[in-house]
Simulated scan of single mutants.
Amino acid sequence: MTEYQLLATAASGIEALTGDELKEMGYEVQVENGKAFFKGTEEDIIKTNLWIRTGDRIKIVFGMFEAFSFDELFEKTKALPWEDILPMDANFPVSGKSQKSTLYSVPDCQAIVKKAIVDKISSFYHRRTRLPETGAQYPIEVAILKDIVTITIDTSGSSLFKRGYRSEKGGAPIKENMAASLIKLTTWRPNKPFYDPTCGSGTIPIEAALMGLNIAPGLQRSFVSEDWNIFPENMWTEERHKAKMAADYSVELDILGTDIDGRMIEIAQSNAKKAGVEEYISFRQMQLSDFKTEKEFGIIVANPPYGERLEEQDYIEELYRQMGDTYRSLPTWSKYILTSDLEFERFYGRRATKKRKLYNGRLRVDYFQFWGKRPQRKRNTEK
């Protein structure tokens, strides 16, 4: 098998979590802004696509070099071993971006990279006519930053947040990989109660259940690289089988999702069923202020409405006050609340233990963390 330089992309502020996931899988990782670099074989491409919860895509870094002219971009792109990965009928669309670079025209850079690859493949396969591009798709990106060109091939296709279980969603849904990231930023473990008071279409509780049961998030979806001929026969089938066998459905989970909107509860239940975790989550139509429990040391993760429109602001501020009043009676529970409202603490009535800046799509948000009391350690009374 071939070893590749691989790249897991992630939202700004999440890349460290993606890097941690890769480290837990046994890879040596270098984390940069929005990126986690690691090395791996064809098997690792499949494994990371199936298992990464917080990342966006797994890409092959096929080339990296300096270029200050279009001629230089063309020649250095053509020099790359495209014949090692692209078959004669490969369909290879080229996207691009450029920042702070001499070569700032993205359409021109895309066209030049495309032409360089066509020349190389045509020469290798002795083609004098136009390449058919009727085969498997190999999405290629040319990204130029400060005159450093990085050419990548996307192995995922659609973003990894598209797990395949969410056929319906609410008005302001959170992406699945962001939901997984919010959970990973807590101290939750499968033996603790977990509660989402504004669950909407159920994404956060569903992601918690997938984690608790050790279900690979990519099991229900397809990937663009499944049709590539670099993979030995049946490798995708074998890795999927390994992932299925790794799930542990004997784990007892205590996960609750509530929402004031009964229609959203129906959608959440439907999505949980598609994800195969409906038996492990309780969904209930309920006002946030009605939550009461005798359980201790639980975790609350909430992505409440942000109140982006002026007419919603009064409702949002009252919702935040309700959170503060309701959760004050839960001193052992830790609460994690995502919002773009920097005044959240004022309405909630308490300063956060910690805040973390994140991006929900392009929207800057803060993750307000209120840590609960820790359970007392049992003293060793043996002499």
Rank of each mutant, 00 (worst) to 15 (best):
304 P>E: 05
184 K>V: 06
245 M>F: 02
123 S>R: 14
80 L>Q: 08
317 E>I: 10
73 L>T: 03
278 E>W: 03
49 N>F: 13
107 P>Q: 10
114 K>A: 11
367 Y>E: 03
326 T>S: 14
301 V>M: 02
38 F>S: 01
126 H>M: 11
213 L>T: 07
210 L>G: 03
282 S>A: 11
184 K>T: 03
37 F>S: 09
18 T>K: 00
106 V>E: 07
5 Q>C: 00
136 A>G: 14
222 S>W: 09
236 W>I: 14
219 L>E: 06
291 F>W: 11
41 T>E: 05
140 I>P: 02
371 W>H: 15
31 V>A: 07
355 K>Y: 03
48 T>L: 02
360 N>P: 10
71 D>A: 09
21 E>I: 07
89 D>I: 10
264 M>T: 07
105 S>K: 15
277 V>A: 01
29 V>I: 13
284 R>P: 02
144 I>E: 07
183 I>D: 06
55 G>N: 01
72 E>Y: 03
148 I>Y: 01
346 R>D: 02
253 L>H: 09
347 F>S: 08
75 E>F: 04
363 L>Y: 08
45 I>W: 03
243 A>F: 02
136 A>T: 08
275 A>T: 12
345 E>I: 08
102 T>E: 02
370 F>T: 08
194 F>H: 06
191 N>F: 03
327 Y>N: 05
308 E>Q: 15
54 T>R: 05
369 Q>M: 15
168 E>I: 05
330 L>I: 12
302 A>Y: 03
186 T>L: 10
175 K>R: 15
112 I>C: 08
13 G>E: 06
119 D>P: 04
147 D>L: 10
321 R>Q: 14
49 N>K: 05
191 N>A: 12
24 E>A: 15
63 G>Q: 12
76 K>P: 09
293 T>H: 04
279 E>H: 12
302 A>L: 04
242 K>G: 01
372 G>V: 00
128 R>T: 13
146 K>N: 14
60 I>K: 10
178 M>V: 11
14 I>S: 13
82 W>R: 11
133 E>N: 12
150 T>Y: 02
323 M>G: 15
129 T>Y: 03
329 S>T: 10
368 F>N: 06
86 L>W: 07
254 D>G: 01
95 S>R: 06
201 S>T: 09
103 L>P: 04
108 D>A: 11
191 N>P: 00
258 T>I: 14
143 A>P: 01
192 K>H: 09
259 D>I: 08
326 T>N: 06
99 Q>A: 13
127 R>L: 08
147 D>S: 12
245 M>C: 09
372 G>H: 01
53 R>L: 14
246 A>C: 06
180 A>N: 05
190 P>Q: 05
207 E>V: 08
187 T>M: 13
